[in-house]
């Protein structure tokens, strides 16, 4: 019996001690994980795949960008609104469309590892004509035009990155104008199928049809023809 009596406070001490240790380590763990979050930016990672990025430039990106989640079918932008951010799509798919009466005309579809914005808002300071909508639950990283402008002055190498991106997106825009000028639905579909076949596993076909300027029926007719 006396042993137990003696033992009890010791046992309590030990529990308190372990709890204190646990609390401390928990706090340390938490702060390191928060720091880790801070030192990592998917946007910076993306830029690094294009061009070497200095430590300071990376820091700048981390401090001047933020994470934005957008759930399926929600709008990032509507016509008449000004877009003052560049969005890097880390995960998910976005599309842009314009409304012609009741009809929706999809103007582009972008999956992850792309940067998107309303170019009119940026370069001409005019409101957007398009809707930008998420087709999957998506993770975006946003940076304002202002911060981006400052970055060009602070880190001249960013001008190279911007030029590379511009070239890339100009080519993509040319691709879209090419696809929309192809005279037959069949040609538009086979071009799409040759260049972006993975999209049909990710987005409802009605968006593919509206991107290719054809009815859903025509698209499904072309697809079954292809599979035969």
């Amino acid at each position: 019996m006396p042993v137990i009596v003696l033992d009890l406070p010791c046992y309590n001490c030990l529990t308190i001690f372990t709890q204190v240790i646990r609390m401390l380590t928990h706090k340390i763990n938490r702060t390191t994980s928060e720091k880790e979050k801070m030192i990592h930016s998917p946007l910076a990672d993306f830029i690094r795949t294009l061009y070497p990025l200095g430590k300071k430039a990376e820091q700048y990106i981390i401090q001047n960008s933020f994470h934005k989640k957008i759930s399926r079918s929600k709008y990032l932008l509507k016509p008449g609104e000004f877009c003052s951010y560049y969005y890097y799509i880390h995960k998910g798919v976005l599309r842009a469309f314009i409304k012609e009466g009741k009809k929706e005309i999809t103007t582009w579809i972008n999956p992850e590892n792309e940067i998107t914005t309303s170019i009119r808002s940026m370069s001409r300071n005019e409101p957007s004509l398009e809707y930008i909508q998420a087709l999957e639950n998506s993770d975006l990283y946003a940076m304002s035009f202002e911060s981006m402008q400052k970055m060009y002055t602070l880190f001249p190498e960013m001008n190279t990155v911007a030029r590379m991106l511009l070239e890339e997106y100009y080519a993509a825009s040319e691709e879209r104008s090419y696809i929309s000028r192809l005279p037959s639905a069949e040609k538009r579909y086979s071009h799409f199928n040759a260049t972006r076949p993975e999209l049909v596993n990710r987005i409802p076909l009605k968006y593919v049809a509206s991107y290719l300027g054809m009815s859903e029926e025509t698209l499904s007719r072309l697809r079954s023809k292809k599979s035969m």
Binding site: S73, K206, E217, S220
Partner: peptide
Amino acid sequence: RAVVAEFIQQQEQLMR
């Protein structure tokens, strides 16, 4: 094809 398209359309609506 129309059946699948309608199903997708309905699930999007249900989500909303």
